[in-house]
Amino acid sequence: MSDRTVLVVDDEFAIRDMLRMALEIVDYRCLEADNIQDAHAIVVDQRPDIVLLDWMLPGGSGIELLRRLKRDEATREMPVIMLTAKTAEDNVIQGLDVGADDYITKPFAPRELIARIKALLRRAGGAEANERMQVSELVLDSKSRRVFLADEPLDMGPTEFNLLQFFMAHPERAYTRNQLLDQVWGANVYVEERTVDVHIRRLRKALSAGAKDYSGLIQTVRGTGYRFSARGAPTG
């Protein structure tokens, strides 16, 4: 049995049962909750590696729990995939903006979800060959998975960290959204292109939160996608 633990939060027993069987087939330990109160207690007590979180739940929405997890320093970097029947773009963007790392709409194929889980867990635990990369006063430490600006830590989610890590390892080259999805999310993971735009926006916000605004490092390349350029670092 793998030491990876997945918390499934859904009020439909049939979905929890299906996911439990799919997870156990790939040797993941499965925890279950059908409301946000029990789910939060499990997160605090057992610290799962990843959370599969339904949007609509009794006693409060999944978004409410997501906000709570992302506000808490102890659970802020815990990967979360939203499970939702809501397909409207505004709802999807809301979930990503709050801090979800990915989403999948019902009904979904268990194999696709498992692929996304594996990709997220790889990203959360992976590191580039260069353990420490630096541009001006911005420093990324792959070993501790922390980013510093003028020696002060920046608050950044795991997906934004992985994006920045990839960009800093491959500067001055323009990447399409599909290329970024393949390189950062994984070639076999089914994520829509607009997900990249949401995480780029969050990365820029994180880079602008320090003593100096480093959001200009992430440049939009019209008609292509995005590029990381040291020329966007502030001067003076």
Rank of each mutant, 00 (worst) to 15 (best):
S229C: 13
D101H: 13
I50Q: 02
A169S: 15
A100E: 06
A33H: 06
A230W: 05
L138E: 08
N35P: 03
L163R: 05
L217F: 02
P153N: 06
G125V: 04
S208A: 15
L180V: 02
V196P: 00
F161V: 03
E192P: 06
A233S: 11
H199C: 06
R116M: 07
S142M: 05
D182Q: 11
L113H: 02
V221R: 12
V43Q: 01
R4P: 03
H199D: 07
E73I: 08
R227K: 14
V191D: 02
L217H: 05
R146L: 08
R47H: 03
L19Q: 08
A150Q: 10
D17S: 15
R132V: 15
A109Y: 14
R204Y: 10
V80N: 10
S61G: 11
L163Y: 09
E77N: 14
V147Y: 06
G59W: 04
K143G: 12
R146E: 11
K212E: 12
P171E: 09
I218G: 07
A41P: 02
R177A: 10
Q134D: 05
V196G: 08
D49T: 01
I42G: 02
D38P: 00
R202P: 04
F166Y: 12
D38R: 06
L52D: 00
A39P: 02
V26I: 08
E89Y: 08
F13T: 13
C30L: 10
D102E: 15
P48M: 04
L66F: 03
V189T: 05
T224I: 15
I93R: 15
N178Q: 15
Q183L: 11
E112K: 09
R68H: 10
F228Q: 09
A211W: 03
V147E: 05
L140Y: 08
A88F: 00
Q179A: 15
D72K: 03
L203V: 13
L121I: 10
D27W: 09
L19R: 11
A14M: 11
E64Q: 11
L66W: 03
D27L: 13
Q37W: 00
M78Q: 10
R71G: 09
T176A: 08
P110Y: 15
A124Q: 11
G232T: 06
V6W: 04
P234D: 06
V43K: 01
I42D: 02
Q37G: 03
Y103H: 13
L138Y: 00
R201A: 14
A39Q: 02
T235G: 04
R123Q: 12
V184Q: 05
A100K: 01
I50S: 00
L121M: 12
V98P: 01
M78A: 06
E192A: 11
K143V: 13
L149P: 01
V135A: 08
G62Y: 03
R132E: 09
M156Y: 08
R202L: 15
K118S: 02
L149N: 05
